[in-house]
Nucleic acid binder design. Structure first.
Length: 536
DNA sequence: ACCATATACATTTTT
DNA sequence: TGTATATGGT
């Protein structure tokens, strides 16, 4: 029995209900971390259908396949067959569909193929090629805001055209060009009468333009997101679109989702205090619904090896290591008394370079772990082959329920490694703060909480301090039960010694919410046998 | 074509 | 400090 409109509001708080029921006109849903954003979007879609909006008129766009898939599965679960005509997908899939429907035929290039083609028109090393590709991408996404295209631009574009090829950026850029045609624009606007955009704070100028073309001035555009989690401006995303939404869409409404269902009150209070320091934001007070929980733990460790050791110690303690049970003071903690799986833990860091020392520590401990991120060049070929196979498989499987996907087709090419990541694998996740967005874990370790790394100023000065703070905020708010911050008093990174001071962001957390633990420097002349014994 | 050695240089990256 | 590319030799 399909749910009636009233059951679609069940279990939602007042703000969520409003976000579901405010179906006409521009609407900004300002949704803090853990506030039930996806639930709200899915109920809104179902609500629209139950209110009589033809399912084919609904457009829901996201940035990642993962988010799109989750949204699609949950919508299907609510609506069943009736959900089929709803477009739920990434910006790139939307662009691809528009191009296909307009009769455009093309092959879609992946990054390596782009580099191959660029290599035919400019002579430079692999690294320089990658940089040039980045510049080309930035230019395309800036939509002419950038004054001059990079030197190779014209010849690169000519080389693409010669081969009838498009790159990922073209999937958004070209539809924007096509939609300059008034007839097509009108047709699209009639088709998509209700638009929902997830992670709106991360849209770039071309994506914004595309939305403007698809949606009339006072149209039913529902922008969902959180300016406090805007972490991709270095890539051309413009959080100003989110902040200025109410100005840009006059008569638009705003609904704040502030009730956090994910984290303990301690974690919410700490994160809220930290992010409150930012100026460029829509102030909202994130409010916990859960219990107080344990204090945030701040470890001060001698160096990066000590950091790995402390993390492993804490994990073993929670996995019921008998050796720790009686000895450790930590067994008093609430989180120490619960039972965990390895996949309940995540180690989050600012730079990939930090992963190595942590990997070594995990490898030595025997705790299963997986580093989520870029494969190195050695693994890359292998990964690419596996990926091609999986894409082909996905093509045949998906092809059975929808004609949306053939092996090797451009649509299959939109799938990435992350889309085949098996979340059931019971292993500790090691990942960057960027990769962690949208995920949650019962226990989160944030490694490298030192000045220079959080915020990350070692590479470049003139960083965006507020974006760095948002990153740390994203990291903190991934934790459900327990947040553990680690600060190495000494760290070697890129051949430089750094990390004497604790991260200034950590110092913004009220002291009452933090419990400090200091691991002393190792005694200089420790016998090697003792160290070995200590591992077992 | 290959291997050894020099040297430059280093974040984050949804598709 | 490491890696990845550039170079110079064979």
């Amino acid at each position: 029995m399909p749910p009636t409109p009233s059951t679609l509001l069940d279990g939602l708080n007042e703000a969520q209900q409003k976000a579901v029921m405010t179906t006409e006109g521009p609407l900004l849903v300002n949704a803090g971390p853990g506030t039930g954003k996806t639930l709200t979007i899915v109920r809104r879609i179902a609500w629209l259908v139950r209110k009589g909006v033809p399912a084919g008129n609904i457009l829901a766009v996201t940035f990642t396949n993962r988010a799109a898939r989750e949204m699609k599965e949950r919508t299907d679960a609510l609506l069943g067959e009736a959900a089929a005509p709803i477009f739920i997908g990434t910006f790139h899939l939307l662009g691809l569909r528009i191009l296909r429907e307009q009769g455009r035929d093309f092959t879609l290039l992946n990054r390596d193929e782009q580099a191959e083609i660029l290599k035919t028109v400019v002579k430079s090393g692999a690294q320089a090629l990658q940089q040039e590709l980045d510049r080309i991408s930035a230019y395309k996404n800036a939509l002419g805001r950038e004054a001059r295209p990079p030197d190779s631009y014209a010849s690169y574009q000519a080389a693409l055209a010669e081969r009838g090829a498009l790159d990922f950026d073209d999937l958004i850029r070209l539809p924007v060009e096509l939609l300059q045609d008034e007839g097509l624009r009108r047709a699209c606007r009639e088709r998509f009468t209700h638009i929902i955009v997830d992670e709106y704070q991360d849209i770039n100028p071309v994506q914004e333009r595309l939305l403007r073309l698809l949606c009339p001035e006072q149209g039913n555009l529902c922008a969902v997101g959180d300016a406090d989690q805007a972490i991709y401006s270095f890539r051309g995303a413009d959080p100003g679109n989110f902040l200025d939404f109410e100005k840009d869409f006059s008569g638009g409404r705003r609904i704040d989702l502030v009730l956090n269902y994910r984290s303990t009150a301690t974690i919410v209070a700490a994160a809220d205090r930290v992010i409150g320091r930012n100026q460029k934001r829509i102030a909202k007070q994130l409010t916990p619904t859960g219990g107080q929980g344990d204090p945030i733990v701040l470890y001060s460790v001698p160096d990066d090896r000590g950091e790995g050791a402390a993390i492993i110690d804490e994990i073993e303690l929670r996995m019921g290591g008998m050796a720790h049970e009686a000895a450790s003071e930590s067994s008093r903690l609430e989180t120490a008394r619960r039972s965990y799986r390895f996949s309940d833990f995540a180690v989050i860091y600012r730079t990939n370079a930090q992963a190595r020392a942590l990997e070594d520590a995990f490898a030595a401990s025997g705790i299963p772990f997986q580093v989520i991120g870029k494969p190195n060049s050695m693994q890359r070929k292998e990964a690419e082959e596996t990926l091609a196979f999986l894409r082909a498989l996905a093509g045949t499987v998906a092809g059975t329920d929808r004609a949306q996907l053939r092996p090797g087709s451009p649509e299959a090419r939109l799938l990435t490694e992350a889309d085949f990541f098996d979340p059931r694998a019971d292993a500790v996740a090691l990942l960057t703060m960027h990769m962690a967005k949208g995920l949650e874990f019962p226990v989160v370790f944030v490694a490298g909480c030192e000045d220079g790394l959080v915020p990350c100023t070692i590479m470049k000065d003139g960083i965006d301090l507020e974006e760095e703070r948002r990153l740390f905020y994203v990291g903190m708010t991934r934790a459900k039960d327990q947040l553990v911050l680690l600060h190495a008093r000494k760290r070697f990174l890129y051949g430089r010694s750094l990390g004497q001071k604790t991260s200034p962001f950590v110092r913004e957390i009220p002291t009452g919410l933090i419990e400090s633990r200091i691991v002393a420097d190792r005694i200089k002349k420790e016998k090697p046998e003792d160290k070995q014994m200590g591992l077992f």
